[in-house]
Amino acid sequence: MSTQTPILAADKLSVRYGSFLALSDVTLSIKPNTIHSVIGPNGAGKTTLFHALTGRVRASSGRITLDGRDITHVSDDKRVPLGIARSFQVTSLFQNLNVRENLRLAAQGRTPLQALAPWRGVNPRDNALAVADEVMERLELTHVSDRAAGELSHGQQRRLEVGMAVAAKPRLILLDEPTSGMGIDDVEAMKALIRDLGRDHTVLFIEHNMSIVMNISDTVTVMRAGRVLVEGPPAVVRDDPEVRRAYLGNMITGDIA
């Protein structure tokens, strides 16, 4: 957490949908091995920022660098082997495939061209399978490994959603509202999981639950209307008068949207 070069940096990043500017001159830098959260009211551009960083949406202007290398024009699937993986706000799994197969595919995504060979079978000692088992263990999904993803409970699906990102063995993991729609017990487990992931990954996550954000983040970025409002350690952000006035006030006292 010193003054290392950032693992991921966005420089004056803008995304325009038609005449609507969803992201406007966002400059962000994620330090390696930190937990970095992005908060802000709905429509602040948080998910658009994720889409741009993972390459799902093309930046209209600005630059994205990974370890100093310009990846602005690298397509989303090609960013995975570079070490970026994400989870989605709205659960997006392979509903008809079982849990192990979901994770095996996610692990295989690191070396996708190997899977393009139509004659190659799935070797039982396959590396991707080993990764899948390891991730299931970590996410406590081993007992449902043979169930179709679509049959899991909501909490399990959310965990698998995060697991899909973990299985890619990324260095930078982006989690889009990992606790979305979760019950209280599951939220605590997810908080522990994100903190745990922070030990061996750089984590960037969007979250509405302030208790998680303020507890486990090293850095918090507050966004509003497509711009970065404030950035800093949780304590600083919490007490920032502009943040309190603009948005946070009621949320910090526990009134969570």
Binding site: D76, A85, Q95, L105, Q114, P118, R120, G121, V122
Partner: peptide, 28 residues
């Protein structure tokens, strides 16, 4: 053989959820 290969299994994933298949790194 094709259907049961890693290739065929990736096709099933594409059929199920193309967006996720791309997000986990497959050039769909």
């Amino acid at each position: 053989r094709v259907a049961s290969s890693t290739f065929g299994r990736t096709l099933l994933a594409v059929r199920d959820n193309e967006e996720r298949a791309r997000a986990i790194g497959f050039p769909v």
